[in-house]
Amino acid sequence: MILGRLLQIAIVLGLLSFASYALIGLIPGDPIDLAIAGDPRLGPEDAARMRALHGLDRPLAARYGTWAMGVLQGEFGYSRLFAVPAASVLWPALGSTLVLLGCALGIAAAGGIALGVLAASRPRSGPWVDAVAVLGQAMPSFWLGILLIILFAVTLGWLPAGGSADEGLGLRFLVLPVATLAVANIAAYARHTAAAMRVALAEPWVRTARAKGASGPRVLWRHVFPNAAVPVLTIAALDAGSLVSGAVVTETVFARPGMGKLIYDSIMGNDYNLALLALLLVALVTMLATLAADLAQRALDPRLSA
């Protein structure tokens, strides 16, 4: 099963790499044209010379071939935007994004599950949790980011409006982006947990357990919750992609260096090597996360492994 999935991931990556290479090639404005437009002293000879130097005079397919061979051999190429090997920009950015995602996911899962359990176990709070969940999901994350900046950075001045720490984790810089990213996901988790819990609570054995004298919270957490965890994990698996998408927006709003911002900047800045690598890496991480969630789900729910 795992082997099959890994193979599938490899195929998707291969297709994706070619598709994005071609697409990025379709983005108008090659770097040399841009340099010429920016610097009046570049003459016609300079243009031809630089185009040959960057290999831009060759057809797209040939360039893709060279690039793909290089990547397979561990040659990731050179970032035009930062003038360093692309890989050396990539890893710190990936780290920063994973920290952001990890925190946001942790908070969202904890908060969402708590809300969901609350909604399911205290019927009176149900509609409120639902309302909060609908609002959270409908809230555009960049708007929430702006509102948080207005409130906490501009009006109150408590937290930085963006950027990242020069050294260390930079907890203060994490708070607002994590909050922004977590809100939408809290809502999703809350909704799905509540739904799953309601189903599980209706099961006959819950009544049996209660009848046997098990206390309310104990039934809830020991018996009902593990059953409800499966659908929640499913959501986690399906949502890995949207979580990463959320990170792109959040990083842009908060000017926080990371994969999302890197992808956006490198596409906008015509940095082929970096854009491609970043895209592929993000896709890979997303697909692996999906796989991991699937595996966890199977481990929890024996019915699925059949």
């Binding site: 108008p28 992609g241 949207s242 959320g246 956006y264």
Partner: peptide, 15 residues
């Protein structure tokens, strides 16, 4: 399974 937004950004930037 793919992160949609980064790909949308690429697609939207295409001429």
């Amino acid at each position: 399974a793919l992160p949609a937004l980064p790909l949308l950004v690429v697609l939207a930037a295409v001429d």
